[in-house]
Amino acid sequence: MNISIHDMIWAIINFLVLVVILNKFLYKPLLGMLDARKQQIQNRLDEADAERSEAAKMKDEYSRQMQNAKEEAREIIGKAARLAEESKSGIIQDAKDEAAQIMKKAREEIGLEKEKAKAELRNEVASLAVMAAGKVLERSLQVQDHEKMIREFVQKAGDVS
């Protein structure tokens, strides 16, 4: 189990030369490239994350605006509907009131006319009755004596009718 000092020295020299050359040709470029790639991927991932969160934020914003707009629209529609309802019932009420008033006025007018007609009729009937009675009775009856009695009778008849 002799150790050849020549082989040993060659082994050391060879190894050190290999370290230097591989360091130049393999380790530095490759590890540097791996680092650069790692860095690049990390950057891309970070960017993607940032963009994604930005997009999510914008989406939130948009959906919130959308929600607001919807609510506003609903409110406006509701308000309009309420307003319409109110005005509708107001109009109906007004119409009803007016109708009632017209009705009442008409009724009053009718009553008045009726009263007037009644009074006219009564006068007419009274004078006609006096005339008829005068004609029938002529001599036997004094106009002045019985006019009062006939008027009373007509009055009673008017009350009954």
Binding site: H6, D7, W10, N14, V17, L18, F25, L26, L30
Partner: peptide, 26 residues
Amino acid sequence: GLQVSSVVTTMWGLMVLIILFSYLAT
């Protein structure tokens, strides 16, 4: 003055191969 035996030549061959591969790869 350093004797070169077959282990040393084998090492050289291996080194040449390794360095060649790493050079081609990089």
